[in-house]
Amino acid sequence: MRVLLLPILLACLGAGLVLAQPAPVPEEGADSIADYRRMLREGNPGELWVARGQQLFHAPRGPNAVSLEACDLGLGAGVLDGAYAALPRYFEDAGRVQDLESRLVHCMVNLQGFDRAQLLQDAFSTGERESDMEALAVYVASRSNGMPLDVQLEHPRELELYRIGETLFHRRSGPLDMSCATCHSRESRRIRLQTLMNINSPVQVREVMGSWPTYRVSHGTVRTLQHRMWDCHWQMRLPDVEYVSDATVALILYLTEQGRGGVIDVPSIRR
């Protein structure tokens, strides 16, 4: 897979560089990044993660040597099409609201017998180790491609967590007095060269929320929303937010509801 990946990437980067050539002005820069994304779409390396996720999902794995086909992602055991579009949601069997990744962890522990602590520790790819979770997440999400984001928000626990997510989004703390809103509540702003989503612009939130998990060129892997939550907290100089913790699910639920109607199209590709 790695052998295949490199020439594809180089070819894509080459194409991107030609397009990006005259880009000293930020606005033009933003345009060429959009072009770059369109070009890369044809040969998005993230598709390899989708294929690997498919393999992982349907193969018998873990101490119990069973596949994830009996996993109920909200629409019934084994129903994948459209399941991601309605996540996060409350699960009776877990007694809590779960997002895509916390639900996958739940199934991998309860069906396949994996060790929860180990799953959490291995959730993000590093230079040395490729994450199974990233592949599984993008595969399951891709089975909702073309469908609009449509969380339920009916169960009291869902409503409760949504309100918490909204509060956390605006909660300033730490040495830099930062909250998510510090960067994500105004129009057309950049941190360094990176354009920032504006939470008050439904069009932007729909586009962003419909396009994760995403292939991060600079990371050389697919990254998930859980990783985005962790990364932002690290950048804000706040303590590590735990993988699939209630705080992450609250934020993801809030963001997904703000992005309601956004059409799922993954894996996308980002810097």
Partner: peptide, 12 residues
């Protein structure tokens, strides 16, 4: 609820 979740739910 948010304060509880931050300090008591092992989220951080």
């Amino acid at each position: 609820l948010g304060e509880y979740l931050i300090f008591e739910s092992n989220s951080f």
